[in-house]
Design a protein around this nucleic acid. Structure first.
Lengths: 336, 336
DNA sequence: GTGAAAGCGCTAACAA
DNA sequence: TTGTTAGCGCTTTCAC
């Protein structure tokens, strides 16, 4: 009881090719016939079957999105941008939560391949050699969002993390801070972990000739709880720190939470700086000073780059770095 | 240069029907042939084309998801649950941000219909008569998540908002509060607006014979900023209130933010209670006491209900109400 | 148990 | 301009 192109053709007294034409190149159909067809399409409430179309056109206007977890505030903001870009180009997003789990990812990629997605975007996770091989084997266009690969030539869209950290440290120094601690991401994370830590260490070395990193750095996993714990450890081993730079907003909130419990005032006693500028950054007390990543744009640009690859065979720019921004709010004190 | 079922058939010395059989009912193929086929499938890295399959099977294992905005913390948590359920049943989610915009929604529904999704889930928005007609015309199975319809028999999954508010007020009363204010959602919202407000008013009437609602209620739109503004208005017109019940966590944070600016201590001077229990509720200072909605479960159960509808023709339960829970944290003071 | 052939709904030559 | 026809890659009778 489904309405197909034949039904439309029959009721319009034309052949199915004519119907197909008014759908795909209306200009090539005489006006009266075209209008007749359009008319019955409306009357019948006809919807062309995208599966049949995709089977022929080799294009489904569906894009796979591999992310670690939709419910992560950073990720969901990125997806928002992706969705907007996709919608603008007439495509849809198929969301896949990988939870950083290899098997899950492989399984999802299989399904995406079978569903004939035009390409996919891979988010937030580093691209290991194994992953790269899997991508190769799949043979689908891919763009990396909020991650990149120096080893492989995969198009990517992200922020320049090292520069961002340099700028953050500069900012803290301008505010008069000299005793700067850091809550870093995990060292096994070559995207948001090591680069930010590396830049921080470089800055410490350069600005203060400081190399006793064990006393000023602690590690978390970007989560609230890990930030809380890291702050605890940091505080227990070092009371001289006047400001803590955190590799994520969530960790910054965790740190603030610990300090609050210890009745250490933020920013009067200790300043806290975050990274990301997720929505929570301006909802907390005190409002968080942070390094803003253009999450929406990262998402938007990544699917734009993907669509470009589909059109032109390649993205206009292999590794695209979007600009970050220091957002000054209330959690960092000017102690000059 | 794509590998199809014919390639597999040829290299396995069998007919394409046999290949199809090992894919769909392996039991009906003799062992040696089956293994041969499986073997070459692996060698060729063959992926069956889901479009072709869907064209025949009338089932795509794709589900449309209409939400207002992925980047909303409540929504993204719900999606997480949906995705998990979908994945478990071998389906995928196509995400559509409607921004509460009718045209956008209609456009999305058209595309979903064309892509032959098995059904869709509609989230967070009330179902107007017009929307219902659109749904009818589409002829796709639908489940409502975090919303419902009393006028139409559409399967839905949500919390019992009125009961939740009764329980919240009870909780506040048990904590010794008698001067209770509310920051409500908009009155045009028949899902999260009026029912919560209605229940609040009933409770006030019943417990305190109070009917001067203009002096104890203000309105927002569930957002942080609107919560801030509403709190300001509420405070300016009424200083006797000892606790403010907010229709969303975000508004509660906005309220706390205002109070913080005014150096009114939460919870020592004024208590604040939220609604939702989004992630931010436990990251803020003080941690938010709130009414928890099982967001993940709402998502999970809604796509489960949808899949059930696809299997059995209808959901096991038309309107499903999941249980809420009062989460006591730090923002409500016991003043007994 | 296996293969040949029809057809899912559509597009794109090719003719007319 | 329009219609006829051959597929797109697969599943599923229906014979064998």
């Amino acid at each position: 009881m489904k309405i197909t192109i034949r039904d439309v053709a029959r009721l319009s007294d034309v052949s199915i090719s004519t119907v197909s034409r008014v759908l795909n190149s209306p200009g090539s159909v005489k006006k009266d016939k075209r209008e007749k067809v359009l008319q019955t399409i409306k009357e019948l409430n006809y919807h062309p079957n995208a599966l049949a179309r995709g089977l022929i056109n080799k294009r489904t206007h569906s894009i796979g999105v591999l992310i670690t977890d939709v419910s992560n505030p950073f990720v969901s903001e990125v997806i928002r941008g992706m969705e907007e870009a996709a919608h603008k180009m007439g495509s849809n997003l198929i969301i896949c939560n990988t939870d950083q789990n290899k098997e899950k990812m492989i399984e999802y990629l299989r399904v995406l391949k079978e569903k004939q997605v035009d390409g996919f975007v891979f988010t937030s996770e580093p691209v290991s050699e194994e992953y790269h091989e899997i991508f190769q084997e799949l043979g689908l266009p891919v763009v990396l969002a909020a991650t990149h690969s120096l080893e492989y030539d995969l198009p990517s869209v992200k922020v320049d993390d090292e520069q961002a950290v340099f700028d953050a440290v500069d900012f803290l120094i301008k505010k008069g801070h000299t005793q700067i601690g850091m809550i870093s991401g995990p060292t096994w994370d070559p995207i948001s972990g090591t680069p930010r830590l590396f830049a921080f260490k470089s800055a410490m070395r350069e600005k203060f000739s400081r190399t006793d990193f064990e006393t000023i750095v602690e590690y978390g996993s970007f989560t609230f709880d890990s930030g809380y714990t890291a702050m605890k450890k940091l505080h227990e081993k070092n009371q001289t720190i006047t400001t803590v730079f955190c590799a994520s907003d969530e960790m910054a909130l965790g740190a603030m939470s610990y300090l609050y419990e210890k009745r250490i005032s933020v920013p009067d006693d200790v300043s806290v700086m975050g990274f990301d500028n997720t929505k929570i950054a301006k909802m907390c007390i005190p409002k968080l000073t942070t390094v803003a990543q253009p999450m929406y744009e990262i998402g938007y640009e990544s699917v734009t780059a993907l669509e470009q690859t589909l059109e032109d065979g390649q993205a206009s720019q292999l590794r695209k770095y979007l600009t970050h921004e220091i957002i000054e709010r209330e959690s960092v004190k000017d102690i000059n």
